[in-house]
């Protein structure tokens, strides 16, 4: 098991290398001189030279990449061009709202999607199943920013119960914190729940057709036991994978949701950095998110062992 985890961690390096090449290449495809693009038209030649020197742009491209990737592995992405602090610090400052939003949303999504998907599968093709599937496909199809705006319209503008945007630190005032996070969590959680519920349903349907489920019924077990004890556990593997993918996708979803609800998180920082071409921050944020996504997927693979004891890693 430990050997497996170590091997998987080592395999992360080539994946991150490819991600790094993609990010680095993209940022260097920018037409024109990056220094002029970043500084704008009014910059003097001396300023541009200084920036080029600071960013190491006078080195050959492969050397630049090796330097940049080497520092990135040590979590050093250079300094932001606008905020006036190291990129890593800027990312850390913004990590809390995004992390909490992702955590709340995935919890909500799992709490909605698993019961909904299981019930839909057990009562397949019933009116209840149809209703649940219509709701879940709407969750997949509705643009999250539009759903967020509808929630703001109802709960903030019409009813006036909840704030329409902003953020309160959980340490400052936990009650207010949750009041501010409720609508963003509902928005992000609902769209993730849609995909998850559909997957839980189809995974459960596969398992419910297995012989051992029929055996369980025929030896007289009550439905609840069969569904939870026999079927659900076996349907968990594909479901866990999608929970992992959804959790990583939350970081992408946060980009949009944080803009809708004006939350000062990583996503907003990234959007702001894209519009003002703060390239070190964009590189740092994108690399970090990709690394988190890859780590989450590794974590999910390790969790399989606990869900399904038949899976043994490293025994080959």
């Amino acid at each position: 098991m430990i050997a497996y985890i170590v091997r998987r961690l080592l395999l992360l390096i080539p994946v991150l290398l490819i991600v790094g090449v993609v990010v680095f290449t993209l940022m260097h495809l920018t037409p024109g001189d990056p220094a002029s693009v970043m500084l704008g038209r009014e910059a003097t030649p001396e300023q541009k030279d200084a920036l080029r020197e600071r960013l190491g742009l006078n080195e050959p491209i492969p050397v630049q990449f090796v330097n940049w990737f080497g520092s990135a592995l040590r979590l050093d992405f250079g300094d932001s061009l606008f905020i006036g602090k190291p990129v890593t610090q800027a990312l850390l400052d913004r990590a809390e709202p995004t992390g909490l939003l992702a955590l709340y949303s995935i919890t909500l999504a799992v709490l909605i999607a698993i019961p909904a998907g299981v019930i839909a599968a057990v009562r397949a093709n019933s009116p209840l199943d149809r209703l649940l599937m219509v709701v879940s496909i709407s969750g997949v199809a509705i643009p999250s920013f539009f759903f967020g705006i509808l929630l703001i319209l109802l709960f903030a503008v019409v009813l006036g119960w909840l704030p329409s945007g902003g953020y309160v630190d959980i340490g400052d005032d936990p009650v207010e914190h949750f009041r501010y996070m409720l609508l963003p969590t509902l928005t992000l959680g609902f769209s993730a729940a849609g995909l998850l519920a559909r997957l839980v349903r189809s995974a459960m349907l596969d398992v419910l057709n297995e012989d051992y489920v029929r055996t369980a019924y025929s030896k007289g077990l009550v439905e609840r036991h069969v569904v939870i004890g026999h079927a659900f556990r076996n349907a968990m593997i594909p479901v866990l994978t999608v929970i992992g993918i959804s959790l990583a996708g939350m970081l992408g979803g946060a980009v949009v949701i944080e803009t809708v609800f004006n939350i000062p998180g990583l996503g907003r920082l990234l959007v702001q950095s894209v519009t003002r071409r703060d390239i070190p921050v964009v590189q740092g944020a994108v690399m970090t998110v990709a690394a988190i996504e890859v780590l989450v997927m590794l974590l999910i693979d390790v969790l399989y062992v606990f869900v399904d004891p038949r899976i043994r890693y490293g025994a080959d």
Binding site: P14, I18, V19, G252, V255, V274, V289, A290, E293
Partner: peptide, 23 residues
């Protein structure tokens, strides 16, 4: 492996990064 690298980003992030480059 190149496809893996592209898929390691949530799609909106990759699209944003490319848009930051292209304008």
């Amino acid at each position: 492996r190149i496809m893996d690298g592209l898929e390691a980003f949530p799609s909106i992030l990759l699209a944003l990064t490319i848009m930051a480059t292209l304008g």
